[in-house]
Design a protein around this nucleic acid. Sequence first.
DNA 1: TATGAATGAGAATTCATTCAT
DNA 2: TATGAATGAATTCTCATTCAT
Lengths: 211, 211, 211, 211
Amino acid sequence: MGIQERKERERERRRQQIIVAAKRVFSAKGFNKATMEDIAKEAELSPGTIYIYFKNKDELYASLSLRILKHLNIRLEHVKNETFQDHGERIASLKQALYDVYEFDPLILINMFHLQSSETLKNLSPELLAEIKELSRSSLGSMADIFEEGINKGAFIEQHPIALADILWAMFSGIILWEESKRIINKEKDYLKPTLEVAFDIFRQGISAQK
Amino acid sequence: MGIQERKERERERRRQQIIVAAKRVFSAKGFNKATMEDIAKEAELSPGTIYIYFKNKDELYASLSLRILKHLNIRLEHVKNETFQDHGERIASLKQALYDVYEFDPLILINMFHLQSSETLKNLSPELLAEIKELSRSSLGSMADIFEEGINKGAFIEQHPIALADILWAMFSGIILWEESKRIINKEKDYLKPTLEVAFDIFRQGISAQK
Amino acid sequence: MGIQERKERERERRRQQIIVAAKRVFSAKGFNKATMEDIAKEAELSPGTIYIYFKNKDELYASLSLRILKHLNIRLEHVKNETFQDHGERIASLKQALYDVYEFDPLILINMFHLQSSETLKNLSPELLAEIKELSRSSLGSMADIFEEGINKGAFIEQHPIALADILWAMFSGIILWEESKRIINKEKDYLKPTLEVAFDIFRQGISAQK
Amino acid sequence: MGIQERKERERERRRQQIIVAAKRVFSAKGFNKATMEDIAKEAELSPGTIYIYFKNKDELYASLSLRILKHLNIRLEHVKNETFQDHGERIASLKQALYDVYEFDPLILINMFHLQSSETLKNLSPELLAEIKELSRSSLGSMADIFEEGINKGAFIEQHPIALADILWAMFSGIILWEESKRIINKEKDYLKPTLEVAFDIFRQGISAQK
DNA sequence: TATGAATGAGAATTCATTCAT
DNA sequence: TATGAATGAATTCTCATTCAT
């Protein structure tokens, strides 16, 4: 049984090794320009080996998103279960959690939108697709729970908690995408951090129940 | 010169025909999976013809974004120059303008984010790149002017007007991307419209100067 | 309209050029060892061009069989429509027709059995498959008509004409396959021609109605 | 030595296990499309294990044919040594023997013709090649002996006995291949048994010495 | 012996782009 | 200008075979 387990562990480690390499290569070159051979070289493996762990390029790509979704999920669970004094604090906690996820994997978040194409989705195995669905559902759920509590306590405006979660997530990822894109086009200074601060302030005040 | 003009008009018409076809194909398949042949077929032209009007695939892609940016720009200019009573009304005007742009070209907005990738930008002609820069600068500028006025009048919180413009745009496009992506992955109902309503309400309240 | 026709002719010529090259390469190397690049080189074309005319390697392969089937079909039609004195003569005509087809394309007949694999069939377009079906049905039909006439005239035994056609074709192709295979294994002399002679004699006597 | 023997027996059993699995896979997919992994899975073994028992894919393939050739050989020996009344009876015996071989291993016979390709033969070990040669020589020889006797007794036409053996075998295997292939392409009913009956009748009458 | 992960050479196939007509 | 066949480099992916455990 020890053998079984060790093999399982090694298998998982190898998967991670490939994912880490893929992340680096995709980030540096983008999905199209990154070749499976590039990734294999980065992972110090042969191209064939990658196909033992990932069905195809699209599935490898999607697995990167899965990784960040898992991370997001864990962080949001923590925020949800935290004890706290006031609801403003909670929004700050959420901000921190989301920002940490971004810092953990800044470029992948941007690429996550690649997933949207139904043409890409076709190439994924149903299991992987189900896992992605479940994780995004669960992350949104955690956020919604936090908002629901605030609504029940009369601290937040009476809106559907899921809608609030969607808006926060969309605003957060929208800002990352937009600031990133401005930086590339204009080679401007990076305003991401302060912009996010302002955005969260606006959001906090925007959902506060007014007396 | 009449001939000259007619030729010019015809040329422009043909360009639009290609852009419309490309828009459909890119939207359905995403940039990577859409082939020039797909687009040619959709436009009922031959692949070679597309290269008469567009330098390459990337430039064709960029032209789509340009089209929507132009439209956005015009609408925002209008909002800026409108006479108005109170600042809540102005946010409603902005919401309407952005939503109109979305309805004018719902799918292309999603693809606009492909532009970010430096992979794509590198292949653009300097002229096109400059035009894109200028248009996005100008659109943001219009929005920022509106916010600046509100700040000066004491109606909005004291934040950098450009930051507010960035946040509104990022929130708006983030929601569209996110709702679209939820719909593709989960085949859920389309909550875009009500979510946008809530989001703009939150934003409005969020930037209101509190007494 | 002349242009349309010329293009059509050129297209057909190009197809034939590829088929001829493929025949040579497949014959020399066998299906597996023959690469699409080999075939392209033999046809003095680029690999991509082959895919304009044939969906994939299996389909190109199947098209070779189609070519010999067409040839067979024409020859058998002729035999069927020939005027003749006695039924022994007709069997001789059939023998000659089949043998000519073999000489026209000796190696392809052997490879035709490659088609049997359902795994290969999966890769063929429905149109091609339908054409193959139709041609083999029609060839068998011509042979069956010949036998039917002989049966009606009381010259041949009373058996189902299609069965007789199947048996003649199976015997003929079985002998070719078998002699070919003996030659490869034993590097013996080539007994194909005399063996076929004996076989047709046996067949003729075997289906003669006995008084 | 008991141990030695047991090991030998086990080795042989394992070989058979692989052969049985390979037979199924080759039959379903054809030689080219069947992968060693397919076969390993079917045999519930790992790919590596197959290479302990068989030098390579070609040799595994050849072993299948060897198996059926051995079986054929034994049955034909029996027919040859049988006492009998008349020569018609002997043809019936031959028919039964061949049909039994087919029923013993219906699918493998089809694949046997893959052996022809020099592509395959080149990769075989000389021993295996010699064994195949010897077995096919001996099987043909048994049949030829039967025919020779009939010729000497004046029951059969005066033709070279080996030619008659070749023709019978080619007709038999040709019919199997052809009926199989018709069934796969047209999904028709299976006419194998009655067609074989008619074919043997024709053959019997065809080689009968006419007064 | 058995395993099965890893290999990596080699193949099929794709597709943006060109160019003769 | 329009065409669309042709290109061919580049890429994804396969699979027989090996080898450390």
